[in-house]
Nucleic acid binder design. Structure first.
Lengths: 211, 211
DNA sequence: GACCTTCTCACCTACGTGTTAAGC
DNA sequence: TCGCTTAACACGTAGGTGAGAAGG
């Protein structure tokens, strides 16, 4: 399996398959301050989550759609004086693992009809056996990754042949076990509904606004 | 599509396909007092839920497993003086609808490996367009139904050919919009974890036991 | 000490319960 | 009045947040 890094041609109809990242503005806000993603042993969701739109598929063919996170360079990183800086060689990569979208396999028509969400994906830094289920991607802390979407024309997720891969550079993030950049943390709290308890702006009907 | 009401022969290996209801004792308790299932517009889960075990499938073949609820007679029912009694002719049945198990299609080996759960199925009495999604079964209130399991040897849930159907008589229930039998209500509260707030026995660590 | 990881916690979202009162 | 349906509600389960303390 050799990932292809560019937009590829659909072999059946010679159409260009396109993968478009949703919530582009939100991702851009995070990208501008430096996106970080938390790792835990039990697995932590990503925020923002990965939502994409697909175009250019053959409506009648059947596809599997997968997600992975890919290392963007070979360095380890450190947050120093307010900036992320490379700090020596990175760890050896874990064996590649994919999150197979739960609707796979489905027709091109169905994939293109509405946005495809990978919000259930979890990141972990623990290589334990219980994490060998679909839903958790194992990565090293303090390294840079980005989300990658993979499309395979196949009826069977267990047999993946020719694969088209689409890296999404805007999603590039540093893996951490605790947030480093306070500006990044503010963005998480302001935008993630599950972190509403930490908002201090007094809006949205907080019952016990703290000072 | 002609449902077959008895245990049928697997055509590939001439083995008898078997469908076994799990939580047999729980279902029996409900059956002995008269099972009722709530209907709401937005859809209500069934309790007990439908969990089955499959046997006698060809391990290498691929199957779709479906669930439906089937009318057991042509009457409308009424709860009078502590008993369910037939009360006139029933409504015309809604067009048949199936809940396709989310793992379909899968190999016989996978289906037989562990119990198959349909706990996410919801019952509704509202024939609105938003209920035309997989997950909700439309039924008439105050009528008798029972759960039916269907097995199709096929790679595509959209094309269902020869279908083996297995009614589960122990699951027979009357559809209601509010519980009629107080004995039945007690069983629901005692056994459904989501109804723990209504238990009055003081056990299970209730923080504010009511009198 | 500096850096990173792990665990517990209060506080949310999301949604499955029967009850109750109101509606038809 | 009676029978049945609907919507709001308190109270659970289940699980996603960053904070903060503790550990290495």
């Amino acid at each position: 399996v050799q990932p292809v890094r560019d937009v590829c041609r659909n072999q059946a109809q010679n159409m260009a398959v396109r993968v478009t990242l949703e919530q582009y503005q939100l991702w851009q806000q995070f990208h501008s301050v430096g996106t970080e993603m938390i790792l835990t042993k039990s697995g932590r969701r990503m925020f923002p989550g990965c939502r994409i739109r697909l175009a250019g598929l053959n409506p009648e063919s059947r596809y599997c759609v997968l997600m992975s996170v890919e290392r963007v360079d070979g360095s380890r990183y450190r947050f120093q004086h307010g900036y992320w800086v490379a700090a020596g060689p990175g760890e050896v990569e874990f064996p590649k693992r994919y999150f197979i979208h739960q609707d796979s396999p489905a027709t091109g028509e169905k994939w293109m009809k509405s946005a495809v969400s990978f919000h259930k994906v979890k990141l972990t830094n623990s290589n334990s056996s219980s994490n060998f289920i679909n839903g958790k991607l194992i990565v090293h802390s303090m390294h840079r990754y980005c989300i990658c979407i993979h499309i395979v024309e196949s009826n069977d997720p267990a047999h993946l042949n020719y694969m088209q891969s689409f890296p999404l550079p805007l999603t590039t993030f540093v893996t951490v076990t605790a947030y480093q950049n306070t500006e990044l943390t503010k963005l998480k709290i302001e935008n993630n509904p599950f972190a509403k308890g930490f908002r201090e702006d007094g809006a949205r009907g907080t019952k016990n606004p703290r000072r």
